[in-house]
Simulated assay, not measured.
Amino acid sequence: MNKLGVKEIEQILPHRHPFLLVDYIEDYEPGKFAVGYKCVTFREDFFKGHFPQEPVMPGVLMVEALAQTGAVAILSLEENKGKIAYFGGIKNCRFRGKVVPGDKLRLETTIIKCKGPVGVGHAVASVDGKVVVDAELTFMIG
Rank of each mutant, 00 (worst) to 15 (best):
G88P: 09
G59C: 08
V100A: 13
Y24A: 00
T41G: 10
L66T: 14
T110N: 12
L137F: 07
E64G: 12
F95N: 13
E10K: 15
V132A: 06
G49W: 08
P117N: 11
V131C: 10
Y86V: 05
M1G: 10
P30T: 11
D128F: 02
L75E: 04
T69Y: 01
P117Q: 08
D23T: 14
G102W: 12
I111R: 13
D134A: 06
Q68F: 03
E64T: 12
F33E: 13
A125D: 04
E26V: 02
K48A: 11
K98V: 11
V120K: 11
M62I: 15
F46D: 01
V118E: 02
D23V: 09
K3T: 08
F42A: 15
V22L: 00
V118M: 15
R96G: 07
A73I: 05
K3V: 02
K91S: 11
M62Y: 08
D27A: 10
H15Y: 14
K48Y: 07
E29M: 07
Q53I: 08
R106Y: 06
R16N: 03
E10Q: 15
L20D: 06
K115L: 06
N92V: 00
I84P: 02
I12S: 03
G88A: 13
F95K: 13
V72H: 08
G36N: 06
A67C: 07
S76H: 01
C114K: 15
V72W: 06
M140G: 10
A67V: 09
G129W: 12
Y28G: 01
M57I: 06
A67F: 04
R16E: 10
C39W: 05
V72N: 04
E44R: 09
F19V: 15
D45R: 12
G82E: 13
I111C: 06
V100G: 10
V40M: 09
V60L: 12
L21S: 15
R96T: 08
L4H: 03
E78G: 00
E64S: 08
K38I: 09
P30N: 04
P18A: 04
G31Y: 07
D27M: 00
V124K: 15
E29T: 07
L75C: 03
K104W: 01
V56H: 13
T109P: 05
G82Q: 00
N2C: 02
V35N: 07
G49V: 05
G5S: 12
C93G: 10
V124S: 08
F95M: 13
E136T: 14
N92T: 04
F47H: 08
M62G: 13
G102I: 03
V131F: 03
Q11E: 15
V127M: 03
R96N: 03
H17C: 02
V100C: 07
M62E: 08
A67N: 05
Q68E: 11
V99Y: 02
K81G: 11
L137Q: 04
G97M: 09
R43N: 14
G88N: 05
H122I: 01
Y37I: 10
G116K: 06
C114F: 08
E78Y: 04
G5M: 01
A123P: 05
Y28P: 01
V133H: 06
G97L: 12
